[in-house]
């Protein structure tokens, strides 16, 4: 059963991963991904992430259920933050535990692709001279087709 957290607070990646997938005979692979706030233009002050509280956790649970069934995951953990996040801060993490690494990697990539364009989050870039909503990319939508 996946554990999903949608939260404003920072998370401790090491603490989240301590013991994840360990101590059982059917897990040979753990994959983790974490996404941080990047500044491509050199002038980003922060990201402001808005979400749809009544829908977010449900949407992510549905994605995690699919991933667990398809890649026979032994465990799955997703954390996604919202609110104001400064450059370099962690935004989200995904961890998957499976029998083999191909399954753990595929499940993590599937979850990342779906979180990007099917979880109800919207990013706004905050700069000294104004702020702009991040536009969804066609390539993000295309990424879903491989699944």
């Amino acid at each position: 059963m996946a554990r999903i957290s949608v939260q404003e607070a920072a998370f401790d990646l090491a603490a989240e991963l301590a013991g994840f997938g360990e101590g059982r005979a059917d897990v040979g692979a753990v994959v983790t991904f974490s996404g941080l706030v990047r500044d491509d233009g050199g002038d980003l002050a922060a990201l402001e992430i808005e979400h749809y509280p009544a829908m977010t956790a449900r949407a992510i649970e549905a994605m995690a259920d699919q991933a667990e069934a398809r890649w026979h995951l032994a465990d799955c953990r997703v954390i996604h933050r919202y609110g104001r996040l400064v450059v370099g801060a962690p935004i989200m993490m995904v961890a998957t535990a499976a029998r083999h690494r191909a399954e753990a990697f595929a499940a993590a990539e599937f979850l990342m692709d779906y979180l990007k364009s099917r979880a109800p989050f919207w990013k706004k870039e905050i700069r000294a001279d104004g702020s702009t909503w991040v536009a969804a990319k066609d390539s993000d939508e295309d990424a879903l087709k491989r699944w």
């Binding site: 996404g35 749809y52 009544a54 829908m55 949407a59 996604h80 935004i91 989200m92 990342m112 979180l115 990007k116 364009s117 099917r118 979880a119 109800p120 989050f121 919207w122 990013k123 909503w133 991040v134 536009a135 969804a136 939508e141």
Partner: peptide, 23 residues
């Protein structure tokens, strides 16, 4: 998530938003 041609019968909450940018 739904479509613009979907029926509204029985629906209590409708949300409009731009394409999502999570991750």
């Amino acid at each position: 998530l739904s479509e613009f041609d979907a029926p509204l019968a029985g629906v209590r909450e409708v949300a409009f938003f731009p394409p999502m940018t999570g991750g």
